[in-house]
Design a protein around this nucleic acid. Structure first.
Length: 410
DNA sequence: ATTCCACAGGAAGCGACGGCCC
DNA sequence: GGGCCGTCGCTTCCTGTGGAAT
């Protein structure tokens, strides 16, 4: 292949998308179809900010891909713009509690927003709190703090942050603070301190899942700006919508499907077809899992490897005990520190939460209580990724010895 | 009705690390 | 450099439990 043809070929390929960014979940469109009611409701609650009064705190509920984050950011932006226009000092701070996941980090993040120099670690937490409070109170203003995925933070030191933030107003002279909590979990307030619960949930907004028709509207709206008209076959959008509707009406999934289908079509230099959507469905899942597995810590990888090896030879679901026995053997074999069973239990639970394995607690009556573990994704791809880790490469082809379980020789 | 297995999973806390302060 | 602080991965110790077997 001649050098000059490399770019020629790539340029030719650019036949599907006009602007791919629009299909990414991070893109915030101007219009949010089928969310007018929620948007208006939130706006109504936040209006006082424009009159320099404290708005009520809000809790927003809804499953993934129901537009909570997009709606919140959208409103936040509008609020700031309007504030500027009216010469009212009101600002919106967005942060994701899955990333910023401790009290210290939340406070530090907020303080940094006001140009305070707070280190990643090292200061006592109340020092950061004081800095934040002083920074806030420097002038008259209304600050709206959006805590996305707020359910990820409670149960840690999270209660404290929510408590501190919700009563920060009584510590302020000039500034005012309101909080918007965004949660995937409808019941997360249940194990929350009732005081926080009532102050945080002054107003509740629910984002119901989209149905297939609504998803279709969303996709059509975005496709118009992002994909060239003539390459999109008619069935594609309805199919993306249908697939995503099955996954609890997840608009993010719908957009991903359309985007990946487009990428696949682009590679083959074709129009986007139904077939591409089906392939995309598969590819998204595998890509996700491969990426997750690749970035797993070694011990988790080893536990996963153990499960794979056992699952293959036994072809049946496993128990924690079995996995742990073999894990011990494998870790010795490749000279990796052996963790306790308690820790391995946690690692298995983490793999479960990542959707790589299935772990269900079952009771076998007389024979105890355990987790029933099985793989929930294709084994082959994963094994390959695991073996890429040099510390695990010694396990290639290694067959674990399987202890006879007592119930088959009685 | 009781017993008892094989764990689940909570609580506490340890040591290392990276960072602050003085 | 010494004394703290927050965070992480981990261990130790622990109490709790669904349901087959008795």
């Amino acid at each position: 292949m001649g050098q000059s043809s490399i770019f020629d070929k790539l340029l030719e390929e650019k036949t599907v998308f006009k602007n791919k960014e629009i299909l990414r979940p991070s893109y915030t469109p101007k219009e949010l179809p089928h969310r007018k009611k929620q948007v208006n409701e939130i706006a109504r609650i936040l209006v006082p900010a424009l009159r320099s009064e404290t708005p009520s705190n809000i809790l927003i509920y809804g499953k993934t891909g129901t537009g909570k984050t997009v709606a919140a950011k959208h409103i936040g932006r509008e609020l700031e713009e309007k504030g500027e226009e009216l010469k009212v000092n009101c600002s919106v701070i967005y942060l994701n509690c899955k990333v910023v996941d401790t009290q210290y980090r939340v406070l530090a993040h907020l303080a940094r927003h006001f140009d305070k120099d707070v280190p990643l670690t090292g200061w006592p937490t109340d020092q950061v709190y004081k800095d934040l409070r002083d920074a806030l109170d420097e002038r008259k203003r209304v600050v709206t703090i959006m805590l996305d995925e707020i359910d990820k933070i409670i149960g840690k030191s999270g209660d404290d942050i929510l408590y501190n933030l919700s009563r920060i107003n009584s510590d302020l002279e000039r500034a005012k603070v309101s909080i918007i909590g965004i949660s995937n979990d409808l019941k997360f307030t249940e194990d929350l301190d009732p005081r926080i619960k009532s102050s945080l949930g002054e107003e509740d907004i629910i984002f119901p899942p989209y149905n297939a028709d609504q998803l279709r509207d969303i996709l059509t709206q975005r496709a118009k700006k992002s994909i060239k008209e003539k390459v999109l076959e008619d069935e594609v959008i309805p199919l993306c919508a249908a697939f995503a509707a099955q996954e609890h009406g997840d608009a993010r999934r719908a957009l991903d499907l359309l985007r990946v289908a487009g990428e696949l079509a682009e590679k083959e230099g074709e129009r986007i077809t139904e077939e591409h959507v089906r392939k995309a469905q598969n590819k998204i899942e595998i890509d996700r899992v491969v990426e997750v597995v690749r970035t797993l810590p070694t011990q988790s990888k080893l536990v996963l490897m153990t499960i794979i090896k056992l699952y293959e030879t036994k072809n049946d679901s496993l128990t924690t005990g079995e996995v742990y026995e073999t894990y011990k053997e494998l870790s010795n074999h490749i000279d990796i520190e052996t963790l306790t069973q308690r820790r391995v239990t946690d690692l298995i639970s983490e793999l479960d939460m990542l959707g790589i394995v299935n772990a269900v607690v079952i009771s076998k009556g007389r024979y105890g209580r355990t987790k029933e573990i099985s793989m929930s994704v294709p084994i082959e791809e994963i094994r390959e990724v695991l073996l890429e880790d040099y510390r695990l490469s010694g396990l290639e082809g290694y067959k674990p010895s399987i202890q006879s379980t007592f119930d088959n020789d009685v």
